[in-house]
Design a protein around this nucleic acid. Structure first.
Lengths: 128, 128
DNA sequence: ACTTGACTTGGAGTTAACTCCAGGCTTTAT
DNA sequence: ATAAAGCCTGGAGTTAACTCCAAGTCAAGT
């Protein structure tokens, strides 16, 4: 697969794909004889995985660390597990925070709704 | 309340409090005769509200817009409600994304756990 | 042979959201 | 009266995460 195809398939700009590879956020992609990237299915899965993790706010720094550990082989399985456990913990906290904010937004919206309804009632009874 | 007290109470740096005020993310705080900020209970509530919204990822730009609408009075109630509805929508999407990522992390952790258990078993039966 | 278009690299520029700092003004303690 | 502490302002600096760009290569079409 060419970079254009991967970019379109996953909705990630080409510059971002190159950037991710450059900083080690995904393993190095093979080039053809002309030095042009040729993404394997495996490469695509990496990109998609990183996209998912990034969308949930996992920092690039941590993900780079994960990729580095992965590339060191089986010796680092324990370390990778620990890394994910820590990130899961933080993710749960963030989700909880966001749920609280969501409730607060819901409440605000309800209050404004009330205010609007009240205003309309007053308009419909202009004698008071 | 002094800025130091608010900063400590809400765990927000003084520079950030001043920055928020400067850019209109919270309404202007009154000063005493020497030009020193004197936060009311109301001011604190604003700061705390903004802190909550920011922690859920609502962009500063949007929140500035909200504060501006708020300061224009009752005419903007409808607009403020719409603003919140839009932000709620986006927040729900983000939470859903994060939940998916969480599941994926859980799965990865489980897989690594399996791998570790398997490795340990092999160690305990070195004859095979 | 020449142009076009997709791709390459290394490096500079951008954006959001802070964070830090210099220079200056009061009040309070010594 | 002098030093220290706390606050002020405007503006510069920082960080994360891209995003853009210039200059160059190569293959395919005219």
């Amino acid at each position: 697969m060419t970079i254009t195809e991967v970019s379109e398939k996953l909705g990630i700009p080409q510059d971002t794909l190159r950037y991710y590879e450059r900083i080690g956020l995904i393993p190095r992609v093979n080039r053809n004889k002309n030095g042009i990237r040729d993404y394997t299915e495996e490469d695509c899965k990496w990109v998609e995985f990183i996209k998912c993790m990034r969308s949930a706010g996992l920092p690039i720094e941590i993900l780079i660390e994960y990729v580095a550990l992965f590339q060191q082989g089986d010796e680092t399985i324990e370390a990778r597990k620990e890394l994910f456990i820590e990130q899961r913990k933080q993710l749960i906290t963030r989700i909880e925070d966001m749920k609280k904010t969501l409730e607060r937004l819901d409440y605000k919206i309800a209050v404004y709704e009330q205010a609007i309804v009240k205003k309309e009632k007053e308009l419909r009874r202009p004698e008071h």
